[in-house]
Computed example of a mutant assay.
Amino acid sequence: MDKLQRVEERLSHLERMVEDLSEVIARQDGELRRMARRVGMLMEREADREAAEGNTIPLADQRPPHW
C-alpha cells in the first residue's frame, strides 16, 4: 500500500466522521429549538397563572431578595 492510498483512505474516514458529526449537530439543534419553545411556553403559562392569582409582578420578573 503506497502513501497516497493511505492518505486517501484516511481522508475518506475523516469525511465520513464529519458527515456523522454534522448529522448529530443537526439533530441536537432541532432538539434544543423544541426545548426552548417548550420552556418559553411554560414561562408564559406560569406568568399567566401568577397574573390570574393577582400577583403584581410575575415571579420571573421579580428581583431576587439579595439585590
Rank of each mutant, 00 (worst) to 15 (best):
Q5V: 07
R38A: 13
R38I: 14
P58A: 03
L42R: 03
G54L: 00
R10V: 12
A60R: 12
R63F: 14
N55S: 07
W67R: 03
E15F: 05
W67V: 10
T56L: 11
E44W: 00
V39M: 11
R38S: 12
R33F: 03
Q62T: 05
T56S: 08
S12A: 11
R49N: 12
Q28T: 01
S12I: 07
S22R: 10
H66N: 06
A52T: 05
L32Q: 04
G30V: 00
R45I: 10
L21W: 12
S22I: 00
Q5T: 12
A60N: 05
G40I: 00
R33D: 08
E15R: 13
L42P: 00
D29F: 00
G54N: 05
L42C: 00
E15G: 06
E15Q: 15
V7S: 09
D2Y: 03
V7G: 01
E9S: 06
M35N: 10
L4T: 04
L59N: 12
R49L: 13
A52K: 15
I57N: 03
D48K: 10
R45G: 10
M43L: 07
R27S: 05
R37Y: 07
E50F: 01
Q28N: 08
V7Q: 13
L21I: 15
M35V: 14
D2G: 13
L42T: 04
S12F: 10
A60D: 04
R38P: 08
G30K: 04
Q5E: 08
A60T: 02
R34G: 03
H13A: 13
A36K: 12
L11V: 10
M1L: 05
M41C: 07
E53G: 04
P64C: 06
R37Q: 09
V7P: 07
M1R: 10
L21R: 12
R33V: 09
E23V: 02
M43I: 04
A36V: 09
R33P: 01
A52N: 08
L59E: 10
A52D: 12
L4P: 02
R16Q: 12
Q5P: 01
L59I: 06
E9C: 04
V39S: 03
A36W: 02
R34F: 03
R49H: 15
I57R: 04
V24W: 04
